[in-house]
Design a protein around this nucleic acid. Structure first.
Ligand code: SF4
Ligand code: SF4
Lengths: 153, 153
DNA sequence: CTATATAGGACCGTTCAAGTCGTATATTTG
DNA sequence: CAAATATACGACTTGAACGGTCCTATATAG
């Protein structure tokens, strides 16, 4: 419950790794997979997905691989999770068609939707750069974030 | 991914329902289940769990049922989720023994742990009373919450 | 004693995450 | 061109977790 998918997890790691190696024009899925011990084939598909959603740019063939499509500061954890795991909902009801049967009678879905938005806001406020940069703690960034993260239930 | 368990969902609904009926000494699992269309047996076990963790008090026999063990304001959504679904972790690594194989090489677990704490903070800041009271929007409560919810990555 | 209720274990079907395999295609290099 | 490397993508398998049911034991009010 409320657990991040390993795929999303791997995706974040990979993007972080790419962000940390801006000098290299492209890193292959295998490179990244080996660096962390992630199953190569699995990571490949994750990166393909991130490519399709425009977060990465790919290049096939020898010395090919992936590179960030944007600055690491402009890619949020939310986007990554969204790209890999699909729409982000903490409840089952908002799950499009296959929703919860008792959506009409349910009285907590609106408050939970706000919680959902709050958590999404938290994830949106975190960039790949934030993950990559060990020395962050940046007070200004923290202050910026705070606005997004306010919750009113 | 990052989806709330229906059991936790049901638990929150039930507690909210109990909070809305403070006059009655106890409501049976069936009462609550019927009110929302939740499978009665399932809800029963959820309530039993909440009782074991001390959030509810139960009374067997006729006219028995469950009642909040504390004031609705003193019960957080976090406690409910914790009681029903067990320890709250968004990553697989912190999952006690059965952790992720690549915990040592992973470089994003610390930042994700902070995200975890932030989300936990959000859930801790929400009480059953907040869910039950339609007219909340209470500016003071929102301000109180804001402190808990600050994120520094 | 009987109806109602909690308490709790065993069980089952479905879903979904995680990972593998196989194949097609693009690109660089010799 | 041919071989090596790498992306692209779909099919498939496995295992665990979730959601739910059933069955039995126990407590208690009337
Ligand atoms: S409708 Fe209510 S019970 Fe059903 S998934 Fe949404 S919040 Fe949970
Ligand atoms: S160690 Fe890293 S990859 Fe493994 S679960 Fe924790 S955060 Fe995810």
């Amino acid at each position: 419950m409320l657990k991040l998918t390993k795929k999303a997890d791997y995706g974040l790691m990979a993007l972080k790794y790419l962000a940390e190696h801006p000098e290299t024009p492209a890193l292959s899925a295998k490179d990244v997979a080996d660096a962390y011990g992630i199953p190569a084939q699995l990571l490949a598909k994750i990166l393909q997905r991130l490519t399709k959603t425009g977060l990465l740019r790919s290049h096939a063939g020898m010395n090919g691989g992936y590179a960030l499509a944007r600055d690491a500061r402009q890619i949020s954890a939310y986007e990554v999770i969204l790209a890999i795991d699909g729409p982000f909902f903490i409840t089952s009801c908002t799950r499009g068609a296959k929703s919860c049967e008792l959506t009409p009678s349910c009285t907590i879905k609106e408050p939970l939707a706000r919680v959902n938005d709050t958590i999404a806001g938290v994830l949106k406020s975190i960039s790949i750069h934030d993950l990559a940069d060990r020395e962050h703690g940046d007070a200004a960034a923290a202050r910026d974030r705070q606005g997004l993260v306010t919750l009113t239930v």
